[in-house]
Write a protein that binds this DNA or RNA. Sequence first.
DNA 1: TTGCGAAACGGACTGCCGGTCCGTATGTTT
DNA 2: AAACATACGGACCGGCAGTCCGTTTCGCAA
Lengths: 191, 191
Amino acid sequence: MGARGERADALRNREAVLAAADGLFADSESPRNVSMDEIASAAGVGKGTLFRGFGDRGGLIRALMEVRSGPLRGAVLEGPAPLGPATPPRERVPALLLALLRFKLDNRHLALALESDGGNSPYQADHYTWWHRTLADALAAVPTVPDADFAAHALLAAVRADLVEHLAGREEMSGEVLEERLRAFTAKILA
Amino acid sequence: MGARGERADALRNREAVLAAADGLFADSESPRNVSMDEIASAAGVGKGTLFRGFGDRGGLIRALMEVRSGPLRGAVLEGPAPLGPATPPRERVPALLLALLRFKLDNRHLALALESDGGNSPYQADHYTWWHRTLADALAAVPTVPDADFAAHALLAAVRADLVEHLAGREEMSGEVLEERLRAFTAKILA
DNA sequence: TTGCGAAACGGACTGCCGGTCCGTATGTTT
DNA sequence: AAACATACGGACCGGCAGTCCGTTTCGCAA
């Protein structure tokens, strides 16, 4: 990724920072109390390096998310059923949502960091708009759904990181149960 | 409200702070860039007063929300149909959601401040748990809805402040259109 | 291998913000 | 009016995101 004339140490540091950030987010209770200083020193890197490489805190989190969500994105873009583009929409819509839910369960800290990033809303992030497009397109192919666009927003809202965290964390709801509830809810919309 | 042995100046200051905060939030692009210092000086009050009265930033925002949402809460708790408790559930559920949507449209800044408060998630706020209880109870009375609890979370997620802000603000979606979309989505769940 | 320019490094520094502290002022009560 | 309780306010603190620039390292070319 972007070995485009990048110096060797720059590349090494980039990896180190991403790894350090990932680890710190995973260990911390809330992404809020992982400071950029901590990330820098955990990566064995100066703060300047960190900010030069990623612009700002949001940029770092976004970069990390891009790396981690790459495989899922790939599976949706060009994988086999039930995620890939050849899947019949009635089957693909729930598959997409469940995959996203599972991803957020597996990467709670990161998803939380991305969405409650601080100032700017998640709705302007590429990550969101891509999922919205994908889901809305799939929904549009199901004739019983009137407003694919809004329905996509609403369904994605049902798997927002902080809600998932609330249900799976504070409440003691297991992943399986949560998946089942989401499946039932989605089925209603597709009915 | 709490004139419980409160000194006259304390009460006056409380009002002044709430008014100032409301105004500043309303005028600002994002609640993030309204600082506590600004609120204090706009209210003609020292910072200490502000923090003694409300505990912390979150407390101030919650207090403000409580005042502003009082009437709606009242209408839901003991008002006439379609919001009051005597309303048939199939009619009450969409009424609750539409009322909440309208409230968030009318109080964008405040709702946004409450939900993207900073560190702590909106899901632990009394405000949320109250709405969830109310909506879940209404949904539980509709036999075609399997998971009243989860459905309530998901439907409330569809009217989250930042999503509403995104649709009504960035995208140029009018309140009426948004209400209609939400109505159709809710109808699907109740079908 | 060496030399040199470009690129990256790192940590001291800045500005800002939420929250605290305590000497001072004001309301209240008798 | 005096004395006590209560509230006031702004200087102060710790911590954070983001910047700046003198220093180091890399990689290429001779």
